[in-house]
């Protein structure tokens, strides 16, 4: 069942509660690497482990994978469902497939790399403080409300699976954005962007950020980072850190 420092498990019909109890126990026993096979929708994997353990998942983990996660690195060989990295604090999530809605919701630290597409409301209300900045890189495209109410952190949308001259379809990108930055490769029309968002071409500082983010993305999924960076990028930024200051009187 386990090697030296590895704990491996066929998850199959285990409930999320039973599975996560086993993971807590394994980590408490000093296990550093966890391998989960035949994962069929079990939720909350990676929550409450609080150690920098490596978790390899084969199958499809359930909602809220890595919710409130603090430390682990999860690699998923497959797709993930909704809410991965929900309110994540620290650690890494790498998904060799698609991710569902609200990926990275309210993340306050850590990194998330999704190889393919993501669903709706991804990266809503990511935030940052000082050095603590979450990073979310998406290889494919996203649905509506990407980066809504974003308060900090970095979001990169690469659009690698878009056809020539095909733009992103998401609308309301960055609505209510008041912090952080979105880098977008590929085309979007103005009507797809939230009113609180400004658009510029990235400068040298931005490319330093992009090189690091896209470089790490490329290393996980065997892309050539140089090639990816050749694409046309737009930088979306909040026009104000106080977008709703003029709504009220007393």
């Amino acid at each position: 069942m386990s090697g030296n420092n590895t704990f491996s498990l066929k998850v199959e019909e285990l409930s999320h509660r039973a599975l996560n109890a086993k993971l807590r126990e394994a980590v408490a026993n000093g296990i550093q690497r966890i391998e989960l096979r035949e994962v069929y929708g079990q939720r909350y994997i990676g929550t409450d482990l609080n150690k920098p353990v490596q978790i390899e998942i084969y199958g499809t983990p359930g909602n809220d994978m890595g919710a409130f996660m603090n430390g682990p690195s999860i690699v998923v060989h497959g797709n993930v469902q909704d809410g991965s990295g929900n309110t994540m604090d620290d650690g890494v999530i790498v998904v060799h497939g698609h991710a569902g809605d609200i990926t990275g919701l309210a993340a306050r630290g850590g990194k998330i790399f999704i190889k393919e597409d993501v669903g709706y409301r991804v990266g809503i209300h990511m935030k940052e403080y000082g050095e603590k900045k979450p990073l979310l890189v998406i290889g494919g495209t996203a649905q509506d409300f990407l980066g809504e109410y974003m308060a900090g952190g970095t979001l990169v949308l690469l659009g690698l699976n878009l056809k020539e001259n095909e733009g992103h379809k998401a609308r309301f990108i960055g609505t209510g954005m008041h912090g952080g930055v979105i880098y977008l490769r590929g085309n979007v029309e103005d009507f797809q962007l939230g009113k609180e968002v400004g658009v510029v071409e990235p400068d040298d500082n931005d490319y330093t950020v992009l090189q690091s983010a896209v470089g790490e993305f490329a290393s996980y999924f065997d892309y050539d980072a140089e090639e990816l960076l050749k694409g046309k990028f737009l930088k979306l930024f909040p026009l104000s850190s106080r977008p709703y200051g003029r709504l009220y009187t007393h």
Binding site: N86, Y149, A151, G176
Partner: peptide, 25 residues
Amino acid sequence: MIPQGTDALSPAPQHDIYSIEDLAQ
């Protein structure tokens, strides 16, 4: 854990809760 001087905006809904099932989650 947000920068000084920015508005702290709490969205109207919790965006991971659109139903009783989501609340359970």
